[in-house]
Design a protein around this nucleic acid. Structure first.
Lengths: 347, 347
DNA sequence: GATGTCTGCTGGAACGGTCCAGCAATGTTC
DNA sequence: GAACATTGCTGGACCGTTCCAGCAGACATC
């Protein structure tokens, strides 16, 4: 009963403050503050004394108090649409590295489930006074349009509406990338190339457009065919089944992303056909998944690390008042040739 | 020139505060504070008035000021070791959902690169006054041992040292899981089962031990063989090559995780052998990767969502002063049978 | 020796909230 | 109708920092 430590959950241990350091070092709290900031007007021996005192009592600056008086947080909010997309990890790594390099903190929130939860997360971000928003995943969080302003600019990693003030974007050129896929297949001798698309989204639109334009460019406009799919494994499977069930089946499939291409690969196998012997398959995104040895998917690779780095650099640069670079940057994708594409039979 | 908005980057627009709301509603700032907190003693019509005023001027609470006076942040720091591991996304989703449910915020940092950067990130987390640390990835961040205390408990998702106060862990039972893999293969008729391990880590140790114990239990102790590998694609490939090159090659491979199993699958193919015709392969983790249609890897599935949920629940519960559940919980994995295992030839 | 300029330090006012004590009205009780 | 509660509101202290004005004392300048 006289046992110590039987805490009631009501005690306030309270971490040491700048005043505790001051008391221990026998100086004023102002001087402690100056010493900790490496201010010039502090005598070297006093500084040592203060630093030692801080160390001894385990002092650590309170970020909330600091943010309050500094009136800024040096923090950007990173909104991630889908953590499961293999692209996200690469992009996020680069974003965090670049933010750290520029001495910005990141706070990551995950959206995608439902609009209400997304709004709530965004609200928390704004209460935190994040200085900018970086959206990874082709769109802003729900309700973010009205939050984007001079004191909270945003950058979308993917296509974003042009002309909106304080809203930038970095994306790869999806139209061009889709063209690369078609060029590659046509170069191998394919003519009946079907595109399995990603439904209604800006990215899917661009890739579809790039496919159609390239087919026309190669004089294959009449053979162009788009089958509805989605960005998922499942969508690719369904799309490929539909495509392969046509009267005159295609010899090649260009699928909207790598994940969906997995599904397409499975559908080709289920149809008793071989890849790339009977059917060639090209994905999009250049994810680690595509590079996995038993898969070896030919894909259109996006410069993910550069995308992330550029997006973070753009946003942090804006916040640091650097010369405002072009608001909408487009990076060039490149074809990554692996083992799911080959000349068509009889070519 | 007389154009407005030519900002110099020096102006202070400064978001509206509680005082601005008070001025607009014609009440005191105290009352605004009470109204925004849904305090009881506020007249309904006044509350409406205040809420309307806040809405009109776009007031948003300042989290830093709130944290300062509340002396707590309701935030936990989530330390992620490897964003690229497909397990991470599942776990993180569950962690975030559970934290949100309990009205805690999460702030995610990524470690793994180098110890110094990890320490710096941890320092930022502590300056933020996170109330607890949740480590996703089998270990605490570097330098976290001394930070773990009554006012900053930690939970490791994976095995953690026992007996350290304020340090808990949630993990799946790797020894049992490895046993399940062996049981499955032995049940199919395999006897020469080789384990491709994960090198020197607590998880690798447990899985290796589980494998060895199970082999002995089945009376196959003499046939047990462990080949060095790693948790990566590459490590699995190397390990499998070595295993298949033996004088009497195995009929089944139990690989330390799904990613390494990908490499093993490739090595089997490169050796001109068929899966599961000639060689059966079992992975570990139950990742989405394993479930992908063209792969269909048999694996030991961890209850990832439950793992994440339990970890977050444990930590938040601790912070809310709930009855301290057992510090180290062990969850049961389950075998997920797919298409990479079959009876050995001639069985 | 009056004036001025450094150097090294200190007190106190912010920052934007919360919350406690207090204070008029109004209502209730005996 | 005095005593006491209750309701609805307000002023001010405080949370842990930063930073500005100010102030001794040392030193240089005329």
């Amino acid at each position: 009963m006289s046992q110590a430590g039987g805490d009631t959950g009501l005690e306030r241990p309270s971490r040491p403050t700048i005043r505790d350091v001051a008391a221990r070092a026998g100086v004023s709290k102002s001087l402690v503050s100056l010493a900790l900031q490496n201010a010039p007007r502090v005598a070297p021996e006093t500084r040592e004394l203060i630093l030692a005192a801080a160390e001894e009592i385990g002092y650590r600056r309170n970020a909330a108090a600091h943010a309050l008086v500094a009136r800024r947080t040096r923090t950007i909010g990173v909104f991630v649409l889908d953590l499961h997309n293999p692209m996200t990890a690469d992009v996020l790594d680069a974003v965090q590295a670049e933010a750290r390099r520029r001495d910005y903190r990141t706070i990551v929130v995950v959206g995608g489930e439902d609009a209400a939860a997304e709004r709530a997360e965004l609200e928390k971000l704004l209460e935190f006074r994040v200085e900018g928003i970086l959206a990874v995943g082709h769109r802003l969080p729900h309700g973010a349009e009205e939050a984007v302003s001079a004191d909270c600019p945003a950058v979308v990693l993917g296509s974003a509406p042009r002309g909106v003030p304080h809203l930038g974007s970095i994306s790869n050129d999806d139209v061009l990338g889709a063209g690369l896929a078609v060029d590659h297949l046509v170069g191998l001798g394919h003519r009946r190339i079907v595109h399995i698309d990603g439904g209604a989204s800006a990215v899917a639109d661009d890739r579809r457009r790039g496919y159609l334009e390239a087919m026309r460019r190669h004089g294959l406009g009449d053979l162009a065919a788009v089958v509805p799919g989605s960005f998922s494994d499942e969508g690719g499977y369904r799309g490929a089944r539909a495509a392969l069930g046509a009267d005159v089946p295609p010899t090649a499939l260009f699928v909207v992303n790598d994940l969906a291409a997995m599904g397409a690969l499975a559908a080709v196998a289920d149809a008793g056909l071989a890849v790339p012997g009977d059917v060639s398959v090209v994905g999009y995104d250049g994810t680690a998944l595509a590079g996995m040895r038993p898969i070896g998917l030919t894909t259109v690779g996006q410069p993910l690390a550069e995308l992330g780095m550029r997006a973070a650099a753009h946003l942090c640069g804006l916040l640091d008042g650097e010369a405002p670079a072009e608001a909408h940057a487009l990076l060039r994708p490149a074809l990554v040739e692996r083992r799911t594409t080959a000349p068509p039979v009889g070519a």
